[in-house]
């Protein structure tokens, strides 16, 4: 089996031509910053996620629009969620409105899996389905998730959802199914091809620019620079989970 992952796939010729043609087109359409960002972190497909990186997100809640739902919509589309908000429906990212009890000031912020360094969901999972990848992304391995929901009990952020009914027509890149627990994956399928999560991209495209995604371990990354230049907090920092998602402006 050792040769399984040492071979690079060659797309069949016609698709390859398309690729080259459209690559040129893409370069012209693309915002240069996004392109450069992508290239800087690329890794070949046969190489796994590296523990040298730690993916993280910084959310500037002062830029987050009250009532704006762009990140949520983008997440739903990317990951094939139906967008319903009943008590049994999955929500990977949600907008939380917080109102200061002493002065009444209200603002919004997005809440999702905080991709903790010490995730309680991973600690409590009996089978090891709840796991943290080398690059810090916390995932559910649905192949061995038995649907006990103990991780949902353990998560301080209420970030996880249980799939209550059968699902069809999934996004091929985002398998989802009845009886397993799921949550934000930082759009791992996108991150692995050097894109930012769908929510971040949509937030930026919408002009809010409230979310920055990047490598917390790299002092040169945009997120590290932003974090070192301004105060930020972890939600439930008292639990010392060292979250991968940080907030400014709370």
């Amino acid at each position: 089996m050792s040769d399984l992952h040492n071979q690079t796939e060659i797309p069949d010729s016609s698709e390859r031509r398309d690729f080259l043609k459209l690559g040129a087109l893409a370069a012209t359409v693309l915002a240069p910053g996004v392109m450069l960002y992508g290239i800087a972190n690329s890794r070949p497909p046969e190489q796994g996620a590296s523990s040298k990186l730690r993916w993280g997100m910084l959310i500037d809640t002062t830029k987050c629009g009250n009532g704006c739902n762009t990140c949520v919509t983008a997440c739903n589309t990317e990951n094939g969620l139906n967008g319903k908000t009943g008590p049994q429906d999955s929500q990977w990212i949600r907008k939380v409105n917080i109102k200061n009890l002493s002065n009444g000031f209200e603002h919004d912020l997005p809440m999702m899996c905080q991709h903790c360094e010490n995730p309680p969901c991973v600690d409590v999972c009996p089978t090891g389905a709840s796991m943290k990848r080398a690059d810090g992304i916390v995932l559910v391995d649905r192949h061995i998730c038995i649907g006990c929901r103990y991780c949902m009990m353990a998560c301080p952020y209420k970030a996880r959802s249980f799939v209550h009914e059968p699902i069809t027509d999934q996004n091929p890149e985002v398998p989802r199914g009845k009886g397993c627990v799921e949550s934000c994956t930082f759009c791992v399928q996108r991150v692995d091809r050097d894109e930012t999560p769908a929510c971040v991209e949509a937030c930026n495209a919408n002009g809010q620019n409230a979310m920055i995604f990047g490598d917390l371990n790299n002092p040169e990354s945009e997120i590290s620079k932003a974090l070192s230049g301004q105060a930020s907090v972890e939600v439930r920092a008292d639990l010392r989970l060292n979250t991968g998602v940080r907030y400014q402006g709370i």
Binding site: T127, C145, G179, C180
Partner: peptide, 24 residues
């Protein structure tokens, strides 16, 4: 369980950090 058909996994995959696994 959400996936009772995978009961065998609960008996073959143990995360020893999990008190739930210890319960099993």
């Amino acid at each position: 369980l959400g996936r009772p058909d995978r009961l065998i996994i609960a008996m073959t995959h143990y995360n020893f950090k999990s008190i739930f696994a210890w319960n099993m």
